[in-house]
Nucleic acid binder design. Structure first.
Lengths: 236, 236
DNA sequence: CGCACAATAGATGTATACAATTAACTCTCA
DNA sequence: TGAGAGTTAATTGTATACATCTATTGTGCG
């Protein structure tokens, strides 16, 4: 079985079988915001959809919960995870610690083939944006960070970054504020420039400020939403 | 259910049930080197030992494989993981990236209660060494790093460090060289001193060199052992 | 009318039975 | 004797049946 570039690394080649398909399908749907945080993932429903037994579905859900994309509540079921504001801050602090240095490493090790792949990746991103495929664009945007970490050739750290990016997708679904929709756009292009020049210093700085920009586009004030009850919303 | 301080964080309180017991038992055994890398973990055998069905055992083994303490090979079974030399290097590079900064944070946030707990922890370590309980001493030694990361109050990073420490235990089992048995001994005490003074700079430096010392005590040369086949060994 | 309690339907947790795969053993044949 | 194919035992993978728990709804009482 050949693993596509976007296959999550936590699916070890030797494990998986049918449950790997479910993990990939759910991962993609979550990353593309087709499945939103809090959505119930019923075992029976999934087993009907994928034509497998609940045994396999449960295995897939357990994998996803270890990736923190899904939250398992005992005797209650599986739900798409809902990171809290505190967790959101922690995720981006961890990214700030890992990714700039990783971007530097990547810049220093970058081969022409790596560069070509990143360029193709950015092109695909732009296509998705042009076609208004917001979900796909978002997923590719995260994948860009993962690809960089893999080029840095530190599988352990790359695995951590992969988890952080996944979690970031949930955080964006919950806390992105519409106003800052102009978002990044050039950030990935600027990084690519630095990579092209093999400029580790620049790559590190650009990644650092890119992450700051993302956090700035989030609304991480306490008590933001959901605090309002149904009653507050519906009463006249 | 109250979670003891040494309960792995990846056992979410709301999941687990009976399989959590198995995860804890196997984790401890691996950390204490009672179970060595490569050991086969048969499902039937474990289900008899713990008086549960294979369903529960498989769930526990899957959890452990996500923590990279156990390696699952499809249709072959579960084995205590055997990190390669390359992975060993990556693990300690990641630790070098995360732990010194985390030690600084911990020093700056340290409360008297935290200090007391760390002191008790070191005392327990010394007891274990005095009683020649090498396994327990090793486990406590790793736990010390995890406790520090928890004091730093960054659950996400603490989770990463926990995984790295776990993997380090396997690495030590495989690559520790007997000669350097004098090992650390004072390193944790020196760190405690820095914490007592709330000296973040010192804590960061001490942690950095502590990690360097550990790597120095490993034999990570390529082609170290097992490269020689049985035939090479036995032929006259 | 409102609150508390009980029954019930739906879902999850666990055990067991069966299918598929692997690994080891035996038997054959050169 | 040694290599190789076929068979067999043992182990893992999956499906299904049953047990347990939760949440909702309905009922009765205050």
């Amino acid at each position: 079985m050949t693993r596509s570039a976007s296959t999550p690394s936590f699916i070890h080649p030797t494990v998986g079988g049918p449950s790997a398909d479910i993990v990939v399908a759910l991962s993609q749907a979550i990353h593309e915001h087709r499945l939103l945080p809090g959505t119930k993932l019923g075992e029976d429903e999934l087993s009907r959809i994928f034509n497998v037994s609940r045994t396999v579905v449960r295995s897939a859900l357990q994998s996803l919960s270890h990736e923190e994309l899904v939250e398992l509540r005992r005797n209650r079921g599986a739900f798409v995870a809902q990171p809290t504001i505190r967790e959101a801050r922690e995720v981006f602090e961890a990214r700030a610690l890992l990714e700039p240095r990783t971007a530097r490493s990547a810049a220093e090790r970058m081969t022409p083939e790596d560069l070509a792949r990143l360029e193709a990746h950015i092109a695909a991103e732009h296509d998705a944006i042009a076609n208004a495929e917001h979900g796909k664009a978002l997923r590719l945007s995260g994948q860009f960070h993962i690809d960089i970490s893999r080029i840095a050739d530190q599988a352990t750290i790359a695995g951590f970054i992969e988890r952080l990016v996944a979690r970031s997708s949930l955080i964006i679904a919950l806390y992105w504020q519409r106003q800052s929709a102009l978002c990044e756009k050039h950030a990935h292009g600027a990084l690519l420039e630095a990579f092209r020049r093999g400029d580790g210093d620049d790559a590190e700085d650009l990644m650092k400020s890119h992450l700051v920009d993302i956090v700035a586009a989030l609304d991480l004030r306490e008590l933001p939403r959901a605090q309002t009850s149904l009653q507050d919303i519906l009463k006249v």
